[in-house]
C-alpha cells in the first residue's frame, strides 16, 4: 500500500505501518551513522542528554557527499543499518520511532522495534542522487567535526521508503526473498 506520512512520526502512524508498505515521508528527520551513534552512546553512558530529542523521531543512517553550489546536499542514500544495531535498542527505548537504512537488523533490534511499536524503513541502496532530490534543506546540528558523519537535520518532501520491519516484527527481507526463491 502507498502511504504519505509526516515525520516526526505519530505513535499511531508508526504502529499502523506494515512490512511492504511503500511510504513517502514529509517533514524532518535526522542523520546519524557509525561515529555519531558511538558518541550518542557515550553521552548516554556519561548521563548527558542527546543532541536532539529522539522521541517520535526518525534517524536516517546516511553520510552524504558534499553539496554542490545551490544544492542542500550531495548524494544521500542509505548506509548499512546493521552497523548501528549495537546502539539502536537503547535509542528505541528512549522513544525513537523510526529508522531508515538498508539491510538486515539483529534479533535485539527486532525485539526493541516490537517492544516500542517502532518501524524500520529501507531506502533504495545506491540511489543517492535520486534520493537527494527529496531533501529540501539540511543543517548540521551536532558533532560537526565528524564531517560526513555529523548529525544533520533534514527537511524532506515525499522521501520514498519501504517498510522493512513493522511494529509486529515482520521482516520484509525474509518474506520477500522467500517468495521468489527458486532453489532446489
Amino acid at each position: 500500500m502507498d502511504r504519505k506520512i509526516s515525520v516526526p512520526l505519530s505513535a499511531e502512524d508508526a504502529a499502523s505501518l506494515r512490512a511492504g508498505d511503500y511510504v513517502y515521508l514529509t517533514g524532518t528527520i535526522y542523520t546519524a551513522r557509525d561515529a555519531a551513534h558511538k558518541r550518542m552512546q557515550e553521552a548516554l553512558d556519561a548521563g548527558h542528554s542527546l543532541p536532539f530529542d529522539v522521541r517520535g523521531n526518525v534517524i536516517y543512517y546516511m553520510g552524504p557527499s558534499p553539496a554542490r553550489e545551490g544544492r542542500p546536499i550531495g548524494s544521500a542514500g542509505p548506509t548499512t543499518a546493521s552497523r548501528m544495531d549495537k546502539y539502536t535498542p537503547a535509542l528505541l527505548d528512549l522513544g525513537l520511532l523510526g529508522m531508515v537504512g538498508k539491510g538486515r537488523r539483529s534479533p535485539a533490534v527486532r525485539e526493541a522495534v516490537i517492544r516500542n511499536h517502532a518501524v524500520y524503513f529501507a531506502a533504495v541502496g545506491g540511489a543517492g542522487a535520486l534520493l537527494s532530490k527529496s531533501i529540501k534543506a539540511a543543517e548540521v546540528i551536532a558533532y560537526e567535526d565528524l564531517g560526513t558523519e555529523a548529525i544533520r537535520k533534514l527537511w524532506v518532501e515525499d522521501f520514498p521508503v519501504i517498510v522493512c520491519m513493522d511494529a509486529q516484527g515482520t521482516d520484509l527481507y525474509e518474506t520477500a526473498a522467500e517468495s521468489f526463491r527458486r532453489e532446489e
Binding site: A122, V124, Y173, A176, A177, S179
Partner: peptide, 9 residues
C-alpha cells in the same frame, strides 16, 4: 536465491 533488487525479492 530470490534476494532480488534491494534485497526485497
Amino acid at each position: 536465491t530470490g534476494i532480488g533488487p534491494g534485497g526485497l525479492g
